[in-house]
Simulated assay, not measured.
Amino acid sequence: MARLSAWVTARVGAVTDEGRQANSLADMAGANSSVVTVSDLAAALNVSQRTVHRLAAQYIGLTPHALIRRRRLQEAAEHIRSEPEVSLSVVAAAHGFSDQAHFAREFHRFLGQTPREYRGASGHHS
């Protein structure tokens, strides 16, 4: 393992502090439900919003907002799977979407189907 690590490090370089920050940014945006804005993300990482945007662009290839939105949509999809009887407007509100129509558009854009279609595909009725 040490040889492999040395070989990789020799070819791509050691992980930089900035690279570690970018990993933390991705982890925080992807797993922390309390992070709902770029400002929240910057505060959690103790860096400026500008740094958050730069790290995301340089290391991740998605905007911080897109990372947060993707997590919220994944949480909403899990909500639909775990509580198939719940109203989609309740799911939308619970995951920070301004209304059900906006939620449905974003859900479709990222997951390729509407929340109603997703619920149906999971074996549940609308």
Rank of each mutant, 00 (worst) to 15 (best):
M1Q: 08
M1E: 03
A2S: 10
S5C: 04
S5V: 14
V8R: 11
R11M: 08
R11W: 04
G13K: 05
G13N: 03
T16H: 01
A22V: 09
A22P: 03
S24H: 07
L25H: 04
G30A: 11
A31V: 09
A31D: 01
N32D: 13
L41H: 08
N46R: 12
R54D: 05
L55F: 03
A57E: 11
Y59D: 10
I60H: 02
T63H: 06
L67T: 04
R69K: 11
R71H: 08
R71L: 07
L73E: 03
E75I: 08
E75W: 08
E75A: 15
E78G: 02
E83M: 11
E85L: 09
V86L: 06
L88A: 05
L88H: 09
S89Q: 08
A94S: 14
A94P: 00
F97P: 00
Q100F: 00
F103E: 01
R105D: 11
E106D: 10
F107Y: 02
R109E: 09
R109W: 00
F110Q: 09
G112E: 06
T114C: 08
P115F: 07
Y118I: 08
G120T: 15
G123P: 08
H124W: 12
H124V: 09
H125Q: 09
H125I: 13
H125K: 11
S126I: 10
S126M: 07
